[in-house]
Amino acid sequence: MRLYFKYVSILFKSQLQYRASFWLLSFGQFLVPFTVFAGLYFMFERFGQLQGWTFFEAALCFGIIHMAFSLSECFARGFDAFSGLVRRGEFDRLLVRPRSTVLQVLGSQFEFTRVGRMLQSAIVLGWALYSLPVEWNTAKVTTLILMIVGGVFIFAGIYILMATLCFWTIQGLEIANILTDGGREMAQYPLNIYERWVKIFFTYVIPFGCVNYLPLLYILGKQDGNEWFYMLLPLAGILFLLPCLAIWHIGVRHYRSTGS
């Protein structure tokens, strides 16, 4: 853990070397989800509601998933940018060091400019929380935090899966966008508006629904069934990381037997 912070601090120093670019990029990162959110706002302004969901409910949905996304891009960026690492042949370097590959890859990149994105999500989140008539208690706050954490884990898991793919090919990785960007775009609206196959895929395969839509029902008091069940669903996001890590290790083993 200490080593991870060491990595973070060294990368922070690196990025501060280009100060102007750093601020501009952070601001740009603020703007990207801002326009998307503006789109959501204008759609609600035009249509009033979305299958029983009000603007602020949808905004909460948006805020949570974007928060999770920006955190994961910030922390797990090393896996996201892994294809470059492999192409430059720098993975060999990580293998001759006495630390786990996961930790070293995590430490290889850290995108501070995502702070802009995070700030934007935080504002949306704050606005939605302030405007919604939810009675907050410890259980609900815990659920909210778990939802964000679970989301971070899912995104991180997807990055790891895609990074693993780099051991075999670095072509066609754009498809990963379906899971990351696609998952984000999709999960920023409540899951019930989609077709069945989308719902099933993003609940049982990539459990975005478990960290966003379903526990949100509980927070908003819309759920039917056991409260505890809905509350603990975000843990599915954390569980999702485990198979991803296992696959990563298979990838590393493959790399070490082919060296390509």
Binding site: G48, G182, V198
Partner: peptide, 18 residues
């Protein structure tokens, strides 16, 4: 995929539009 998602979102908005 993105096309599908966007269309579903628009359909949801349009379904209850007054």
């Amino acid at each position: 995929f993105f096309g599908f998602v966007f269309i579903m979102i628009y359909m949801a908005f349009y379904s209850h539009s007054s």
